[in-house]
């Protein structure tokens, strides 16, 4: 898969995704690799939130991914939690070379659970998997934490582009499955009814 952007005019579905995790774990790098297929080795702090879009195709459906890349720094934490609202997928990122960032995943997990929608799909990602010499967290440790939190897990490297697309495609597939399951459950109600209900709330114009 290439990082080339596809025209975004038509799509079947919008998904709002969020990247969270400690400062410096490589959230922005993963996003830059996924959307623009680039890698920048120098560390530039994300101030606030960066936002990028890429449209992908999963199971024949065109899905427009809106990805919010949040600042890991503590002083932005209260601000960024406001953006958890409405996110359909949340990617918890840690750095396999930094023990602390792995330990903090639990804190991120509980923050996410506190602020995000109940049905948001989570995913655990261990970034910088290329750094074999400095590795502090094994793949097994990552797997067992993911198992404990009951969320899927991937190790990736934004630098070597290993597994980067997989993160987003896998997450999008999981969300899509969830949504179609919901749709089956809600089959009694037609979509038009839902539209009307939504309209009643807004009172536009």
């Amino acid at each position: 898969m290439s990082g080339a952007r596809t025209p975004s005019r038509s799509y079947d579905m919008i998904m709002k995704l969020l990247l969270v995790g400690d400062s410096g774990v490589g959230k922005s790098c993963l996003l830059l690799r996924f959307v623009e297929d680039k890698f920048n080795p120098s560390f530039i702090t994300t101030i606030g939130i960066d936002f990028k879009i890429r449209t992908i195709e999963v199971n024949g459906k065109r899905i427009k991914l809106q990805v919010w890349d949040t600042a890991g720094q503590e002083r932005f934490r209260t601000i960024t939690t406001a953006y958890y609202r409405g996110a359909m997928g949340i990617i918890l990122v840690y750095d396999v070379t930094d023990e602390r960032t792995f330990a903090n995943v639990r804190t991120w997990f509980s923050t996410v659970n506190q602020h995000a929608n109940d049905d948001a799909q989570l995913m655990l990602v261990g970034n910088k998997s290329d750094e074999t010499d400095n590795r502090a967290i094994t793949k097994q440790q990552g797997e067992s934490l993911a198992k404990e939190l009951n969320i899927p897990f991937i190790e990736a490297s934004a630098k070597t582009n290993e597994n980067v697309d997989e993160i987003f495609f896998q997450l999008a597939t999981l969300i899509q499955d969830k949504v179609s399951q919901d749709q089956l459950n809600n089959d009694g109600r037609g979509s038009l009814n839902v539209n009307k209900a939504a309209g009643a709330k807004a009172g536009c114009c």
């Binding site: 975004s8 005019r9 038509s10 799509y11 079947d12 579905m13 919008i14 936002f51 879009i53 459906k61 065109r62 809106q66 409405g86 359909m88 949504v179 919901d182 749709q183 809600n186 109600r189 979509s191 038009l192 839902v194 539209n195 939504a198 709330k201 807004a202």
Partner: peptide, 25 residues
Amino acid sequence: TLFDTDVDKPQSGLFNNVKMVQPMR
């Protein structure tokens, strides 16, 4: 909008999906 584009273009796909028509105000 800030995050979405072509919001004036009818999206036939939207109506096949319950999730999609939740207002995002």
